[in-house]
Design a protein around this nucleic acid. Structure first.
Lengths: 201, 201
DNA sequence: ACCTGAACACCGTTCAAGT
DNA sequence: ACCTGAACACCGTTCAAGT
């Protein structure tokens, strides 16, 4: 796996190296595979060496979750139709979550991400909603509903049959998942827009 | 806590006693408090004694999750308007989830419940959707969206501030949570109904 | 500053043995 | 059938010590 170091030689760990190894571990062995000890094993250091670069396992996870969201494309709120802008953000987020299915349970347990990327997304969403005439508590409600919908949709994605359904094949394909997501996303956006129009009238 | 048994006296455990103690542990000490060893401690038995009544911790959790859903009121699909019926089921489910917040992360990780109660709910939902002209894959999509919405809404409920929001007080009150939930639920139901009508035309 | 050895206080689960 | 003692193979994290 990794070349042995001669004794006395530094491991040369970095916060980024730790994060990268954690991501690898996650995609290879899933959620249960990500343990501090397995991480240390993979980096060929003692378990406690990790604590020189990461304060705690939870902090490490939060960093990974936020990092994934940094790839979400955020359209300029001033140049885009507000509904299209929100649809773009949520679709992009949902696609990224599907590409990192093993992380989704962590998003749920941690209730989303909380770093700079998540803040950037949250602010863009509020700005778009404001352009649509949605502000105050209604805007936060809509923001919450959209986030719940995106993460929740990504969560209920594995092969485990839902309640009441038998086992029709191997479950929905990725294209089907995306289509289902976009359909329900439209329902939400239409509802939000309708309510906003009613308030303005 | 519990009276000491004289040696040689049976503990007299039951599956139901184990489940009840697990529920108590969950409400008292939260998710992290539910360990097989803590459960055994509370029941005054050795940790492995539990395995005479429950095959595994995951099975125990699944039983608890399904038990909670047994309290959901399911209206007769033949006597109720299908949208009202679905609204009733989902609102009832959501209320129960809010009453057991500590269980919600488990519903997410386990992707819902899978026992007889969950099956009963799933079938009732499909029956109501069928009465609304929604069948086949569309019905399963709608079912999925409604479940994701209910569990997801209950999940994003704690005091942890969402991305982009500061810390406005102590977070939404229970009444606000229910109102927000019912609003987005209406969005979903309206969207589902609209699509069904469009298909029939 | 970065890393190790050793330890602390835990986990879920299994196995052989007792009644 | 139900329960215990002991063990297996782990956890996350801390502390003192070394370079």
């Amino acid at each position: 796996m990794s070349l042995p170091r001669s004794p006395g030689q530094r491991a040369g760990l970095t916060r980024d190296l730790v994060l990268d190894a954690a991501r690898d571990l996650l995609t290879q062995d899933g959620l249960d595979g990500l343990t501090m000890r397995a991480l240390a094993r993979r980096l060929d250091v003692a378990p406690n060496a990790l604590y020189s670069h990461v304060p705690t396992k939870t902090a490490l996870i939060d960093d990974i979750l936020d990092d994934v969201l940094s790839a979400v494309v955020v359209p300029d709120p001033d140049l885009t139709d507000w509904q299209d802008g929100l649809r773009s953000i949520m679709t992009s987020t949902h696609r990224l979550l599907l590409e990192h299915v093993e992380l989704v349970p962590l998003y749920l347990v941690r209730q989303g991400a909380h770093g700079p990327s998540a803040q950037r997304l949250g602010k863009a969403m509020l700005a778009l909603l404001l352009r649509g005439g949605v502000s105050g508590t209604a805007a936060r409600d809509a923001q919450r509903a959209l986030i719940v919908h995106a993460i929740g949709s990504a969560a209920f994605t594995s092969r485990r049959p839902l309640e009441g359904e038998g086992d029709p094949g191997r479950g929905p394909s990725r294209a089907e998942l995306v289509r289902t997501f976009e359909r329900s996303l439209s329902w939400l956006l239409t509802g939000i827009a309708t309510t906003a129009e009613a308030r303005e009238a």
